[in-house]
């Protein structure tokens, strides 16, 4: 187990290094000049050239790369070209909103998605199953921004129940923090609920048709015991895999939801940085995202051993 963990951690570093190199080269080869964006729309050629010189953007690419790698190894992710602040500080500011939104979304999605999936599998072919299938189809097909605008109009503008936009750190109180996350969580979790429900239903249906389930029924096991003690445990591995992938994707991919609800998270930071060609931030975010993606997958792999004792590393 320890050897496996070490192997995975080493591979995580290798993945991050490859991502870093790829991102560095891609950014430098893509068109766009941060100096021109900084200088402003009507800036003169001299102003832009001066800024380029000061930012070190005129240096040969290998020198820029070596300096960047050296700084990274020393724990320095660089300084934002625009904000003039350390990338790690900016990432730190943006991590809490994204993690809050991701964790709340996963809690809601897993609770509702798994419940709906179990219920649909238990009553497969019935009215509830069909209703849940329709819900899943809607959840898949309606874009998150459409859901977002709809619930903003309904819950924030018409009913005045919840704020339209923004984020309050949890340090300012759990109430305001939760209040600002309700609508984005609702919008974001709809698709995930549908996805997890479909996977759960399919996985449960497979298990429910096994011989040992018929044996359990013949022995007089209650529906609760059959579904949760016997079926769900055996159907858990694919569900856990999907949940893990969804969570990893959420951390790095909630751009639209963060934009619609103005949540100042990692997604917004990334899009702004790409638009502005703020290279240090883009590099920092992508390395962080790749690291988290690999670590979440590792956590999922380890969690398999908890629900399926046959799996050993």
């Amino acid at each position: 187990m320890v050897a496996y963990l070490l192997r995975r951690l080493v591979s995580t570093i290798a993945v991050m290094a490859m991502v870093g190199m790829f991102v560095f080269l891609l950014l430098r080869l893509a068109p766009g000049d941060p100096a021109a964006i900084i200088a402003g729309k009507s800036a003169t050629v001299e102003m832009i050239a001066g800024i380029r010189e000061k930012l070190g953007l005129n240096e040969p690419m290998p020198i820029q790369f070596v300096r960047w790698v050296g700084d990274m190894l020393g724990g320095d992710f660089g300084t934002s070209i625009f904000a003039g602040r350390p990338v790690l500080e900016l990432l730190g500011q943006r991590l809490e909103p994204t993690l809050s939104l991701s964790i709340l979304t996963m809690i809601v999605s897993v609770l509702l998605g798994v419940s709906f999936g179990i219920f649909a599998a238990w009553r497969a072919g019935g009215a509830v199953d069909r209703m849940l299938s329709v819900f899943a189809a809607i959840g898949f097909s309606v874009p998150v921004f459409v859901v977002g605008y709809f619930i903003i109009y309904w819950f924030a503008i018409s009913m005045h129940w919840l704020p339209v936009q923004g984020y309050r750190p949890i340090a300012q109180g759990v109430g305001p923090w939760f209040e600002h996350l309700v609508l984005p969580t609702m919008a974001l979790s709809l698709g995930y609920i549908a996805f997890i429900a479909r996977i759960t239903r399919a996985s449960m249906l497979e298990v429910l048709s096994e011989d040992y389930m018929r044996t359990a029924a013949a022995k007089g096991a209650s529906p609760y015991a059959m579904l949760f003690h016997h079926a769900l445990k055996n159907a858990g591995v694919p569900i856990l895999t999907v949940v893990g992938l969804c969570f990893a994707y959420l951390i790095s991919g909630v751009v639209i939801t963060e934009t619609v609800f103005n949540v100042p998270g990692i997604g917004r930071l990334t899009v702004d940085a790409i638009n502005n060609r703020d290279y240090p931030i883009i590099q920092g975010v992508l390395i962080l995202a790749s690291g988290m993606y690999v670590l979440v997958n590792l956590a999922v792999d380890l969690a398999y051993t908890l629900i399926d004792p046959r799996i050993r590393y």
């Binding site: 109009y153 924030a156 339209v164 936009q165 923004g166 934009t259 619609v260 899009v271």
Partner: peptide, 18 residues
């Protein structure tokens, strides 16, 4: 100065007195 990237959201925030 609140940074609201999406114009529709900014308008909704104005309407909602945020």
């Amino acid at each position: 100065w609140d940074v609201i990237a999406d114009q529709q959201t900014a308008m909704a925030a104005l309407q909602a007195d945020e």
